[in-house]
Amino acid sequence: MAQQMPKMKKLREKKPIRFDRSLLDGLAKQNVVLMTGIVNAPVVIAATTFKKGTVIALAFAFISMLTIFICSFVPKKIVYTLRVIIYALVGSVIYIPTVLALEEIFPRTVGLIGIYMPLIITNALIFSKTESRFYLRKRGEMMIDVFFFSVGFGAVSVIVGMLRELITMGSIADVKLAELNISAFEAPFGGFIMVGIMAGAFRALYNYARNRRIKQNQLQKDKNGEA
């Protein structure tokens, strides 16, 4: 009993999740589409309408979160060169219930996304970020981190889908809003150019906000020093 006590104490000490700013990195600072560009094929090619953008966002979140969670139990003793096989296999198993559920909710949209739906299983969040970031954290923190990375991707996917639907058909979620018909933005080159410009504008905004915050903090520090 006495021996068990320190063990229990250790476990309890391990439990609390430290919620720091870095857990929100996936939203803006390390957004996988606009900042790092490590996942962009589904957004560039398939997110051409609001509905498609939403389906891609949901599929990405379900597949990535579940795969990363399950694979976090894979022993690190297995070399990474072989561990990736397990990640890929788990991802493709998770894909089955995900696509069946989405097919029930969005019956026609899933088919329209085509090969970009199963390609989500090879996303860089599962194959690169797991080793360099997620698996270095406690499991609870890791899941919050993955959640915000998925939200960051999902937001961009939905916004790009919405903008492209508006530009190419003058509607959002099938609701006609304007007489627009610039079909070029439905093509891959339109997707590349739009995402590229969005990424540049987002980075400029992010850098501006960060520099302003740093300046304000510096001013505050100086004031405190004078006082």
Partner: peptide, 23 residues
Amino acid sequence: VPAAFRGMPIMMVFIGILSLAFY
């Protein structure tokens, strides 16, 4: 290239222009 567009963003625009040519 302007700092905000350097790297990935301008690369995407570049791919977009080449994609248009391939199209």
